[in-house]
């Protein structure tokens, strides 16, 4: 398979990339290309222009200074092997280590991942559970968007046509126990269901819990019902079962099914993987 024809521009600066984006309505941004190039190969995407931002080195790298600042071009492999990410947010390390396979993680970037907003992707679920902030830049300057407002729908985000994702800010979650549990599609390696939890313990009692689910829905979402069912408990089996029931009730109307994993199966697995995520978090 071969992509359709397009004009190719390699941006040397962020400003140059933004100018090209502003002046070319049918342009797509190319970072690692691990969502875009398969779409080009299948002719699901046929943009007139690709703007390659892959060499904007100032968008690559991880800084840990109160919170984690992860440049948009940072690869999954770089995040997976970062000691700072492991310290600040273990669930993010775990989730990126489950994206695709080693070769995909060597090229695929976190910025491209979230801009693409594939519903079966792993990082969005963790970013949502951890109240992350997305940094954007457009011709008029920079802005930030809480991740809760970033993912709008299937493959749809709040990024405007003339904006770039420049980075992702993840709070220091080291005072929480975090985990990401994933039911992986055996061929595609996408998430059939992925659940991220971040629990804050006060002795043996759960002070509060953040629960997010992805894979099964048009976009990752938080589960207020599960969070309420866990808060104030000792995270015993009764609390976990109640949280799983609450989560399943919340997603049942929206859950997406396919021939591999029908709606009822995905819904049931959401409950199972929530419990696994909590147990993994407590064991961490």
């Amino acid at each position: 398979m071969r992509p359709g024809k397009f004009a190719y521009h390699r941006a040397e600066t962020i400003d140059a990339a933004l100018e090209l984006l502003t002046n070319n309505e049918d342009a797509k941004v190319l970072a690692g290309g691990h969502s875009l190039i398969p779409a080009l190969n299948l002719r699901l995407a046929q943009p007139e222009m690709l703007i390659d931002i892959g060499r904007l080195e100032n968008l690559r790298g991880i800084q840990a200074n109160g919170s984690l600042m992860i440049g948009a071009l940072t690869t999954h492999a770089q995040i997976e092997t970062s000691a700072a990410v492991q310290q600040y947010c273990r669930a993010l390390s775990a989730a990126v280590s489950k994206v695709g396979d080693p070769m995909v993680r060597n090229r695929g970037t976190i910025g491209g991942n979230i801009a693409h907003a594939d519903p079966a992707s792993d990082p969005p679920t963790v970013l949502l559970a951890c109240d992350s902030i997305i940094h954007l830049q457009g011709p008029d300057g920079t802005r930030t968007v809480p991740v809760q407002d970033f993912f709008l729908d299937l493959f749809t985000t709040d990024v405007q046509p003339n904006e770039l994702v420049t980075g992702i800010e993840v709070p220091n979650m080291s005072d929480h126990k975090t985990a990401y549990a994933k039911l992986t599609h055996p061929a595609s390696h996408y998430a059939v269901v992925g659940v991220c939890v971040a629990v804050k313990m006060d002795g043996d009692t759960c002070d509060h819990a953040h629960v997010a689910i992805g894979g099964a829905l048009p976009k990752a979402m938080r589960s207020p019902g599960a969070e309420a069912a866990l808060a104030g408990t000792t995270l015993d089996d009764a609390a976990l079962n109640a949280a799983a029931e609450a989560l399943m009730d919340e997603i049942r109307a929206e859950v997406m099914g396919d021939v591999y994993a029908p709606e009822a199966y995905r819904t049931a697995m959401a409950g199972v993987y929530l419990k696994r995520a909590i147990r993994q978090a407590l064991a961490s």
Binding site: L30, G33, I37, D52, G54
Partner: peptide, 10 residues
């Protein structure tokens, strides 16, 4: 890397 998912110009 997977060379089917990489443009030569990259």
């Amino acid at each position: 890397v997977k060379s089917c998912t990489c443009l030569a110009v990259q």
